[in-house]
Design a protein around this nucleic acid. Structure first.
Lengths: 202, 202
DNA sequence: GTCTATAGAGGGATAGAC
DNA sequence: GTCTATCCCTCTATAGAC
């Protein structure tokens, strides 16, 4: 038994539930997830879930806060770095965001569809103004292209990074593209997206 | 009572259920929708739903086929028109797709998240190869930019059109943007997206 | 902390009267 | 075709033994 296996076995009961909840909630969404699914995934007794987290709803909120952070706050420090140029931000975010999303391909559609289903719940979690829409990155966009709403360019940037992951299930369900082809496409995007963004800035 | 009101009142019971189901399924998703919600929305007795459609699942499939058609097949004829240039296709699709999605803003995230939750179900519905990935549009992209996978450019095009609607709930839940601002942004996109696409083709 | 058993509510579906 | 009443299963949550 290696160190990682030991670590997994030695996870606290609470942490085992959270890890199981991450997997099941992300895959099925809140409404379609049964507490029994989570207990089974965790290999633990169902009654313990309520002992540790009081309710399905409370456990979901814990996971959801994590996931929203992961999706939005991941790029926030880079976007707000006052010491980097617009081009440097674009290059860094494209590569690192695509890598993070490749490891968590269901993350965007999970978070965005749960927000749509229950928007009120998320007003408190997301501080979009601070993190993103008033970021240094958006200020730099506004300076570079004064005639255009910087949100337009920001949407293009995020869209070009995130949309392939949103559309992925369509390719999959139709067998229109193999996993290898899709991964190659994403790998190419790490350099292509910055190239296209810079075209839009000229 | 005007003609339209008459038409609504005179809808068949079956059609009233379908109209109610469109609204509720699209807003909440399959798992979170109760058959009682649909009956209430339709102003009809719950037992009738099963009389007409046998089950929630069967009613959902009927609505889902419609919605998938609406999202994908809407642009298919334009993309497969052998008499129009690449630029003409881009111009037409951008304007008309944004207009259709403005009337159905929940359509993309609804369809894409249901496909993710249950991919098998959709293999039969979507003929992506024919409709989209092997379209005349993609062939034209491949000819224009021989060095690059045309799917990359196609993803950018669809992403720039669809992503704002996917991200809309985020702006909304954070009150980061008013409805008017968002609509103006979409209106501007009808000419901006074609402009950006043509930059990528040079 | 962990288990079994079960309460209690919700939701899909149907029987049967009209 | 449409209604009321209700079946019955599933799911969340808790009581209570260990």
């Amino acid at each position: 038994m290696n160190e990682q296996e030991k670590a997994e076995v030695n996870l606290s009961t609470e942490e085992k539930f959270k890890e199981a909840a991450r997997i099941v909630f992300t895959k099925k969404g809140y409404a379609a997830t049964k507490t029994r699914d989570i207990a089974e995934q965790a290999g633990l007794n169902l009654a313990l879930l309520n002992y540790y987290f009081r309710s399905k709803e409370k456990l979901f909120e814990i996971i959801m806060i994590e996931k929203v952070q992961q999706l939005f706050a991941f790029i926030s420090p880079a976007l707000n770095d006052t010491n980097t140029s617009l081009e440097e931000k674009i290059d860094w975010v494209a590569v690192n965001y695509i890598e993070m999303l490749t490891k968590n391909p269901d993350l965007p559609i999970f978070v965005l569809s749960e927000i749509r289903t229950n928007p009120e719940r998320f007003a408190k979690i997301i501080q979009l103004n601070t993190f993103v829409l008033k970021s240094h990155f958006v200020k730099q966009l506004a300076e570079r292209k004064p005639g255009i709403n910087p949100v337009q360019l920001f949407l293009n940037f995020l869209g070009m990074l995130i949309f392939p992951f949103i559309a992925k299930p369509v390719f999959h369900s139709t067998s229109a593209m193999s996993d290898d082809m899709f991964n190659q496409l994403l790998e190419d995007r790490k350099t292509l997206v910055p190239k296209w963004m810079k075209l839009m800035l000229e």
